[in-house]
Every structure is written in C-alpha cells, then in structure tokens.
C-alpha cells in the first residue's frame, strides 16, 4: 500500500469510529435528559400556571409523543443541520450555539495561546537547567498551578486586577462589534484563569519529554557530531518533544471550550458553558442536547485530527489496531 493510501485507509477507519462515537453520545445524552426530573413547560409557566395552558404548551413544544420518535426527529434534524428551536428562547438552537461559540471559541484559543506561550518555554528552561534551583522553582510553580481551584483563582484575580489595580474589567463581554480590542481585553482575565493549570501541565510534559529525548540515540549522535548541548537540545530534542506536547494541546483545546462553565459565570461572559448551565436548570432540553453534542463533536474531531497528524508523522500507527 502506498503511504497516502495507508493514511487514507487509517483516516477512514478513524472517521467511522468518530461517527459511531457521536451516535452513541447522542443516544446517551438523549436518554439522560429523558430521565431528568422536571418539565420545561412547568418551568416556563411558573407558580400559578393554569394546568390546561401547561398541556397546550407541552404540545406546542413537541414534548408529547413516544421518546424513540422524538429522538429520531431530533437526530434527523441534526443531520440536516437543524438543531431544533429552544423551548425557552424560542430561537433556533444552532444560532444560539453559534453566538456563544463566538465567545467560548476565542476564549479557549486565547487561553491555549497563553498556556503554550508560558508553559512550553518554562518546560524547556526547566529541562535545560535540570536539577538546578530554577528547575526546582519552575516545578514547584507548576505544582501550585495544578492545585489552585480555577474559580478561586478567578475571584482572586478579579479582586487584585479589577478592584485594587483596576487593570482589567471585572467581567462582561462588550461583543465583537464593539471592536476587537475591548472584546479581547474582557477575555484576558478569564483566559488567564483557564490557562494556569494548562500551562502547568504543558510545562511538565515538555520538561519530561525533553529529558526523555536527551537520553535518546539521536542526541548522542548529535553530540558526537560536535553540536553543543543547547544546540542539540534545540535542533533535535525540542522537535521530538513537541509531539507529546501537541497531543496535550489538542486535548486541552476541546477541554477549554467546555471547561469554562464556572469561569464564564464568575466573569459573566455569554459563552457556551453558561448557555448549557442555564439550559439545564431551565430544562431547555433541546439546547442541552445540541450543546453537548457540539462539544462532543469538537472533542472527537480534535482527537481525530491529532490521530491523523500522528499517522502522517509516525508510520507505525497506520497499521490496523
């Protein structure tokens, strides 16, 4: 088999498993929501609701009918790109998700950029100074980065940077139409909060990957060629160490898109996490289903892309499992 053919067939297999994962996820999420107690119609109509009005609303929302039929209707719509209409907002779920992704997506990217920008260099420095005081300091810092609960860190940051120093806004999102700069500025603190543990993880992964690479054959060869230690590190070890780091970065992106639920609440950002949190409490089931499915889609797509990238780099992975 040619190389391209092997990759294509590998990609085909992975794609099939991606589709199956999505399908299974859609069933799981639908079933979970069916058992959740609470009635979206009752939520909307409140304490003194008229029982007949409630019935009418239920019928209008399409909450009547057997579950299998409702599942097929929903998934059929999703396949055509129609995620249904939100019960409470009465607006198309797809447009709600798109609006929120415009906040959560850039937030995740910004956080990831910060994590990569801080984490990788720190990891490299720690590896280069392995065993030294700087290494110990960086490793201690990463331990603390991993241990701080993000919502607490968020509260502290707001207190220090917004209230005492006044360097950043305490929260809110002016919208992209207010200009790119104000929008980015409002995402800065939340991105910092989200980036902290990720940067710590990246630094640790980078450090151990670099140290691992230092013991490898190609490094010995490189040093034998007469390259200095730091040159050898830069030219050979760094590139090899990037592979595990990239895997982690791929995982982190999908985690960050969904991981901001609590942080979005602290900074009152209209993101995807807050949409789904609110939808769960209001029993806006169709929105919950849609958002979770999109999040799962992001996760499996990113994993898929990382796997393909691996296959391109590393021929051993192309063999059937």
């Amino acid at each position: 088999m040619t190389r391209a053919g092997a990759i294509a067939s590998y990609a085909g297999r992975r794609f099939l498993s991606l589709a199956l994962t999505l399908l299974a996820a859609s069933v799981v999420i639908f079933v979970l929501l069916q058992i959740a107690p609470g009635d979206p119609a009752a939520y909307m109509m409140g304490l003194n609701a008229d029982p007949r009005a409630l019935e009418a609303l239920r019928a209008e929302l399409g909450l009547a009918g057997p579950p299998v039929e409702r599942y097929l209707n929903w998934i059929g719509g999703v396949l055509r790109g129609d995620f249904g209409v939100s019960y409470t907002y009465r607006a198309p779920v797809s447009s709600l998700i798109a609006e929120r992704l415009a906040v959560s997506g850039p937030l995740a990217l910004l956080a990831l950029a910060l994590a990569v920008g801080v984490g990788l260099p720190l990891g490299a420095v720690a590896a280069a100074r392995r065993g030294g005081p700087l290494d110990a300091l960086i490793m201690a810092a990463t331990q603390i980065g991993l241990a701080v609960p993000n919502f607490w860190f968020a509260i502290l940051l707001v207190f220090v940077f917004s209230i005492v120093l006044g360097w950043a806004s305490a929260g809110g999102f002016p919208g992209w139409d207010a200009g790119v700069l104000p929008a980015l500025r409002s995402l800065l603190l939340p991105a910092l909060v989200l980036a902290l543990p990720q940067a710590a993880i990246l630094a640790r992964v980078m450090r151990s990957a670099l140290i691992d690479a230092q013991g490898r054959q190609y490094m010995l060869t490189a040093r034998a060629k007469g390259l200095s230690e730091s040159e050898a590190l830069r030219r050979h070890a760094f590139r090899n160490a990037l592979i595990p780091a990239l895997t982690i970065i791929g995982l982190q992106f999908s985690f960050l898109v969904a991981g901001g639920v609590i942080i979005e609440n602290v900074f009152y950002l209209p993101g995807l996490g807050r949409l789904v949190f609110q939808a769960i409490t209001q029993r806006d089931l169709i929105v919950v289903q849609g958002v979770v499915l999109v999040l799962v889609l992001i996760v499996v797509t990113v994993n898929f892309l990382v796997d393909i990238a691996y296959a391109v780099v590393d021929p051993r992975l192309r063999r059937p499992a």
Partner: peptide, 10 residues
C-alpha cells in the same frame, strides 16, 4: 469525549 463538568452537572 463528554465534557466532564457539564455531564456532572447533568
């Protein structure tokens, strides 16, 4: 593949 926190909330 499920977003852990969101599923925990669910």
């Amino acid at each position: 593949a499920f977003p852990a926190l969101i599923l925990a909330i669910l």
